[in-house]
Design a protein around this nucleic acid. Structure first.
Lengths: 149, 149
DNA sequence: GCCCTTATTGCAATCGGTTTTCACTTTCAG
DNA sequence: CTGAAAGTGAAAACCGATTGCAATAAGGGC
């Protein structure tokens, strides 16, 4: 997914931070994953590229990368916190219940929902957290093949 | 909020479960709270009414009450899991960023959003988690008074 | 009321993820 | 090279959640 190393490096150094080998490994692990990863999963995956990586560093790195907007936190698959690459624009995520794959979508017409909710509750709505779940096309296909064959 | 003891008792006994002093304390604590409570907060609150209540029991009780639909889990205020009384129907929650108050709303036209997401991603959408956040009218008022006065 | 069965409870131990501490290493500017 | 600051890993601390287990309490039958 869209993880431009040069851009990340620029984002970091703009804040006096550095793109280290460990941070690169974390980034690569998340970019390569087909689904969201928990901190522990990031740790496991990134250690294949950087075996001396410590779990502490993973947590710190995830926090940094989330802060600068390179990663996005999602509530995924039983884990309260998992991480995916932040996509281009403001988007939401769909999680596949079968394989855990995370896909972003942008067709988010939440304005109508937010407005209706505001009318009903009297709140001034400032933010929303929306996450859909379902079955991705790949899993739907393989399930179809299995039940058909 | 709508926590009818008699009805809860019926729900429980229909499943061979019992409405104990401890469970009543948990229910009362959540019903009395103006916002969602984490398990630990429930523990603290309920112990005022039932000092010998154990934290273990709180966890087990929350699970039971969630299962029978008396409580609802929400993602609230930094806590991954908090609990509020379940309102009448299928609804979503708005959380006030200022005071933590949780209000349910039913105006949920997610079908359109889900359909758009399905078109865009190819997923078959089966479920959604939506939570809005903002400022409740009470907090909006007090903030307005403060800045105006 | 009493007895019996079974749900329920509290304590203490444990677990697992997260955070902190701290001494050491790396990076970068001068 | 040198110094300052960012970054790191291992171990310990932390903390919420879970589990095992013996004691307790609730509710039905009598």
């Amino acid at each position: 997914m869209s993880l431009d190393t040069a851009q990340v490096s620029a984002e970091l150094s703009a804040r006096g931070l550095r793109l280290t080998r460990q941070r690169r490994a974390v980034l690569d692990a998340i970019a390569a994953a087909p689904c969201s990863l928990s901190p522990l999963q990031v740790y496991d995956a990134a250690r294949e590229q950087c075996p001396e990586l410590g779990l502490t560093t993973v947590y710190r790195t995830l926090e940094v990368l989330d802060e600068i907007g390179v990663l996005r936190r999602v509530h995924g698959h039983g884990h309260c916190e998992s991480f995916v690459p932040a996509a281009t624009a403001h988007g939401h995520t769909v999680v596949c219940d079968a394989c855990g794959r995370v896909t972003e979508f942008t067709a988010c017409d939440m304005d109508a929902v937010a407005e209706a909710a505001a009318r009903e509750t009297g709140y001034r709505i400032t933010d929303h957290f929306l996450q859909l779940s379902g079955i991705c096309s790949r899993c739907a296909h393989s399930a179809g093949e299995r039940s058909a064959g």
